[in-house]
Design a binder for these strands. Structure first.
Lengths: 146, 146
DNA sequence: TTGCGTGCAAAGGTTTTGCATGGCA
DNA sequence: TGCCATGCAAAACCTTTGCACGCAA
């Protein structure tokens, strides 16, 4: 019943450290696995999934899916600071996902809640559009406009 | 290049009809397949995926992911309305799609463009969250908060 | 020593791809 | 007739489960 009790293992520490290190961005199971492999700390995929599940139950991470991506995203849930919420811009042309930390977004969400009663889930919401690089390259080579 | 050109086939009509019939709800590839099977109109899974992809490109459907579910959701997008000028809010709980006309959006989009160089495509962008009705019913039955 | 932790292999589910055939225009 | 459309099978992914062994307490 006390699912918060857990052993201190090499694997658990490595995963948690990585999550905290990247608390301003979300990570995927793959990115965790790749990183750990890179630094010579092999941890099985299964173990990563199981730890994330446990951390999720404990409320230490958040899990969400980003539109257009296939795998789940996880982010360390720092309960002290609420300012690490960011939103996402996805370029429809190059596919790049931009993480945007911006105070403006809170105003928007508050407005939508106050005036329309809708509670926005920033972790799931993605703005689609064209990023600045693609805008430029499109302007330089404008040949068609259908 | 003109990817909007497409043959009129039995399969395409069947899929589009079903989408329009259910334009107030989202559907999944499975629900489409099941329904068509039920009414004796077999269409291969592959074909359904391919048509949905094409309809997505044409802007005739929207694609969503709903938290906690594994497969993607699709909903017919009514092109008559001026959907380029307002927000779409998708309730993650009841699935309702809300069209939100609000002068605030211009400020938001301008801000994102001015400060971040990103041109938002309102037609594709969807805000996920919880609608007012669901918020209320959730408040009435709050039993656990972990 | 006890029981949770670990990781390989395999299974389960969703989506994509290859390829030969079918059918619209 | 020329392409695009179709659908089966297989592949590619992501995630979960089974099971034997490892290891923290």
């Amino acid at each position: 019943m006390n699912r918060n009790s857990s052993y201190k293992t090499r694997q658990r520490s490595a995963i948690l450290d990585f999550l905290i290190e990247n608390k301003d961005n979300h990570v995927t199971v793959n990115s965790i696995s790749d990183y750990l492999e890179q630094v010579g700390t092999h941890v099985g995929i299964t173990t990563i999934y199981r730890h994330l599940d446990k951390l999720l139950e404990q409320g230490l991470v958040r899990k969400y899916t980003i539109d257009g991506t296939t795998s789940a995203c996880y982010q360390y849930a720092n309960t002290d600071e609420k300012c690490h919420q960011h939103f996402h811009l996805k370029c429809e042309r190059c596919g790049k996902l931009i993480h945007l930390n911006c105070s403006h977004i809170n105003e928007i969400c508050e407005h939508i809640y106050d005036d329309h009663g809708f509670t926005v889930n920033l972790y799931r919401t993605v703005f689609y559009g064209i990023c600045s690089e693609c805008s430029e390259s499109l302007m330089n080579t404008e040949e068609k406009q259908e």
